[in-house]
Design a protein around this nucleic acid. Sequence first.
DNA 1: AATGAATGAGACTTCATTCAT
DNA 2: GATGAATGAAGTCTCATTCAT
Lengths: 191, 191, 191, 191
Amino acid sequence: MSKLEKRDEIVRAALELIAEHGFHGAPMALIAERAGVGAGTIYRYFENKDVLINEMYQELEEKIFPVITEGYGELKAFRERFLHLGTALLRYFIQNPLDFRYLEQFHNSPYGVATRRERLLGVREGCDVYFHLFEEGIAQQVLKDVPLPLLFALSFGPLLAAARDHILGFIELDDALIARTIEACWDAVKR
Amino acid sequence: MSKLEKRDEIVRAALELIAEHGFHGAPMALIAERAGVGAGTIYRYFENKDVLINEMYQELEEKIFPVITEGYGELKAFRERFLHLGTALLRYFIQNPLDFRYLEQFHNSPYGVATRRERLLGVREGCDVYFHLFEEGIAQQVLKDVPLPLLFALSFGPLLAAARDHILGFIELDDALIARTIEACWDAVKR
Amino acid sequence: MSKLEKRDEIVRAALELIAEHGFHGAPMALIAERAGVGAGTIYRYFENKDVLINEMYQELEEKIFPVITEGYGELKAFRERFLHLGTALLRYFIQNPLDFRYLEQFHNSPYGVATRRERLLGVREGCDVYFHLFEEGIAQQVLKDVPLPLLFALSFGPLLAAARDHILGFIELDDALIARTIEACWDAVKR
Amino acid sequence: MSKLEKRDEIVRAALELIAEHGFHGAPMALIAERAGVGAGTIYRYFENKDVLINEMYQELEEKIFPVITEGYGELKAFRERFLHLGTALLRYFIQNPLDFRYLEQFHNSPYGVATRRERLLGVREGCDVYFHLFEEGIAQQVLKDVPLPLLFALSFGPLLAAARDHILGFIELDDALIARTIEACWDAVKR
DNA sequence: AATGAATGAGACTTCATTCAT
DNA sequence: GATGAATGAAGTCTCATTCAT
């Protein structure tokens, strides 16, 4: 196993365990075992558990951003752009349930609190895109005239709830339902 | 302190600690201290920590239900009933931030997983009310024709996200904004 | 075992292990085992290992002071008082070799550094007695006119070295030799 | 870097770290880093950490001996010879505080115990010189008639204590004070 | 010969739970 | 019934040492 592969294995094992059992259910020894490395090895790649958890979060953000913004720049109409981002994000979560569960664990934990104070929604770069989009929407009087954070809540709230329900098996979101979900989000924020 | 008071003190102390610091930051010894009882005493009222946590959840549900359904029965129009429930729930969370934080901690933890499998949204009896309301809405073709769980996601998702942002201090939800928030939820689910 | 006895057993076990094998050779688990208590029990009496080590030091100081100052107040002549303190201290170390070894371990470790900055010699209250004695000696021109700390070095240096050699078995300090040792210390500091 | 230089760098790095932070604060990885070699490389020069520590001690002894005996052979008078050795040794410690700190760390640790059993004072070859000097002194009835080890304690005890206090900054030993210190040592041992 | 990544034993500490008082 | 001191399993992290490159 190469150095890079080892790091990846650690992150993969940690992602799995944390996504499935929470931070509590992911002791370093178990992460090491699942990654196929010694317990001490993790500390060659991450200073401590907190750093591991936070770096994993950063990496997820950086991984998600390009995926949801692919093809975004070419779109003109406001509504289309909104739908594009929402659809891409929901699709990403559905296709990467572990990533989604991890993000939820992170947000709902002391780890995520500091991060959350700075960034409203947890997908930072994507957040910036949304930020600009929403400001434009308010200016153009396309979106409801409410505080920006509320717009975030109105669009991400249902999206994340839907993703969660799909991943937990309560609903089966196919392409059609994904589209309808995002349209509902649009209904919630549009003027 | 009577037996009942003692139990209440334990629950109150646990709620405070868990809401503010998560399950991690609420060791039994600290709960006992804050409740003004001995550590062993907790185990006379709750078999173990898991039971305490789950019973607290049950109690919260039972506490919330009558609050949000007060005056509900007299309403006729579908939209009004939807708005009533949403407004009451959001108001409750804003006025009882500890309860809200606790529910969030619970949902986002292994404790909440099992519970969640059975009940879709975390407010069980309220859930039943919503359940009937939504089924009626679908039948009357007032609501979007999507799976029931998705309707839940579309209405509770934004509501909970808004409550969270208010409690964390990102927005200040006054009566006007509360109304607009719930109306946005309505926009999301209405046909 | 009563609460006080338990604390004493912990201190006794720690003293033994640290005196014989240094801080390194005294893991908390071993201290607990030798004290006949559970590993976690130590933490009910001492916040952590550092606190244990420092409190033990404090206690030793407080234990030694009354012993070496017993009968001290009645003495008049300067030389007699010096000899009294020195003899009593050396006797104490010889009779309590574990205490002596512990003090040496403590002084020669990061633990002792901070303490040492404040107090020159490690026997604080005894130190005060010595402090006054030495200042008087300088004022009366009985002692060599050198900086106070050097006087301490000249009297405690040989005393501690002799105690160490006795405890390690290199010499056998009987009453006669103890007397001659302390007289030699006197020769070193007297004008 | 040649083989010899590499070894020297390792010893130098270890000396620095151990003198300043004790054996605790000198992990092999850090020694290697400061020496500019790989961690594994140390083990090509020293079987393990214990061996490194003990060999360093040997080397220090061998380094100190010629320094303190320089010009010693030409002296005739007993007192002069005693003062010469003491002054040279104290000077050496003051000019090489790392060496001094290392020796103290070594003596006050399990590492030093075994060594100490064999040699009385820690400066082996110098020890021999002292050994002969002291035996001569006893025979000539110039020194106090006490066991040899006690003579060592009486002369090295204050010397080392003074050196320590100087290095820790409690006193400032200039040439005059060095002379007076050694004379005080002489007072302690002379008949 | 040199490296330094990997290892895992072992250190300190926390905390849910028990049980003698 | 209530207590809270005691417990020890389990968690995080360090570091001397090895070994494939």
